[in-house]
Simulated assay, not measured.
Amino acid sequence: MAAHNDSGKEAEELVKTWLVGRGYQFVEANFRYKHAEIDLIFTYKGLLVFVEVKFRSGTGFGFAEEFVDSTKRKLIVKAVDHFIHLKDWQKDIRFDIVTVYRDKNGNVNFKQFEDAFY
Rank of each mutant, 00 (worst) to 15 (best):
F31S: 14
L75W: 00
F110W: 11
V108W: 09
L86W: 02
E10K: 12
E66R: 02
D115E: 07
V80W: 07
H85F: 14
K74D: 14
N105R: 05
E13C: 08
H82W: 06
T43E: 11
A29G: 14
F83W: 07
L40N: 06
A29F: 03
F55L: 08
E65T: 04
L75C: 04
I76K: 05
R22N: 11
K34R: 14
E65G: 07
F31P: 12
W89G: 01
E13N: 11
T17I: 13
K45V: 08
I38R: 01
K111E: 13
G21L: 15
F67C: 00
F42M: 08
H85V: 12
I38D: 00
H82D: 11
K72P: 01
N5P: 05
A11D: 03
T17Q: 15
V51L: 03
T71G: 12
V100C: 09
R102N: 00
Y24G: 14
F63Y: 05
G60T: 04
K34A: 15
L48F: 01
N109F: 09
R22K: 14
L47Q: 07
R56Y: 00
A36L: 09
V53T: 08
G106F: 02
Y33A: 15
L75Q: 05
L40Y: 04
K78D: 06
H35R: 14
E114R: 12
V98L: 15
T59E: 01
H85L: 11
A36S: 15
H82C: 09
T99A: 12
R102S: 06
G106A: 02
Q112G: 11
R32N: 10
D39A: 10
L40E: 08
R94L: 09
D39W: 03
N109I: 05
K34W: 11
Y101T: 05
V98Y: 11
N109G: 10
V15L: 15
E10Y: 10
F63R: 11
F113I: 07
R56V: 02
N109Q: 07
E114T: 14
K91G: 15
T43P: 04
V108I: 11
F67M: 02
F31R: 06
A79V: 02
G62H: 01
D69I: 02
L19H: 07
V53Q: 08
K16P: 06
I97E: 09
R94D: 09
T71S: 13
W18K: 14
T99N: 02
F67R: 03
